[in-house]
Amino acid sequence: MYRSFFFSLALHGFFILLAYYGLPSIRTHQIIEQPIDIVEDTPVSSKTSLKLGTKKAREVKKIEKKIIKKPVVKKTPPPPPLPDKKMVDKKNKEIEKIKELKKIAKLIKQKPTLKIQKNNKIETPKAISKPDTIKNIQNSQLAKGILKTLTKPSPVMDSDKKENRKNNNKDVLNKIRQMVGNSSKKVQEIEKELTQTEYDKIKNHIGKCWDISYSASEVKQIIDLKISANIDGTVNSVEIVDKSLYGKDAFYRATADSARRAVLDCSPLPIPKNKAERFKSFYFDFDPSFISSY
């Protein structure tokens, strides 16, 4: 009874998950191979060998251009449209969001500071008399290289100070939780996310390498490239995601190729070392719409 129930439950769960996400092993990196269009024996004739026709028109007469001067109607261009209220509100909201994120990023970066009270004197470790044999050995080592043997005396912290430090950490975490919600999972996610500076650094790095043609203004879609990078930022693989569009749209194909060249040419990427895990598999979304403003 139990056996069949568990079997059924497990199988149902498995198939639901399989149907929703698909098998991870199926997602293989396919390398796009460019078809080479070799046209065999395409005859090219000379279309420029021409025959002169028979003359029909003979007489030549001068043409007088009649240009009638008329008063020029001056028209002042209309003033530029005022920005929409909704747009302004939306922009303000976005700025606030960015500010909040920056605050969170600052809090994450901030190191917990120690507040040492003046009255609490740091007790130095007490010297314990050593046997004479050890003393002699140490003395002989001191003569050879004193820095090798020396260690800085570390201040002994009492339990209050330890607690103080813990509380300081807690404060930071609590503040983050207050701002983004109280779940520890969300805090972990934010720690994984890039800061705006890190994001912009990578964005500008690739932008400098992207040699884009004016014809890219014909591309109305975002070109998604799936990238895999190593810890040191070197690009492992670049995959053009929309293969069907790549195959049928010449503008998309040329612009996607230029985007791929940009990523490969700009390797290694300036990725933050503590967040290298995020760059094992990520996407560059190339948007060529800016070219229309050129």
């Binding site: 769960g13 500008n204 690739i206 040699d211 996407y283 979304d285 800016f290």
Partner: peptide, 30 residues
Amino acid sequence: ILSFFMLLISLCNSEIFAEDLRIKINSGQV
């Protein structure tokens, strides 16, 4: 059964279900 569920849990926690990082590039050199 136990190992099967362990496999499912590990899959759920694995990176393939995590949200992908996306960086938008909207500048280039003409």
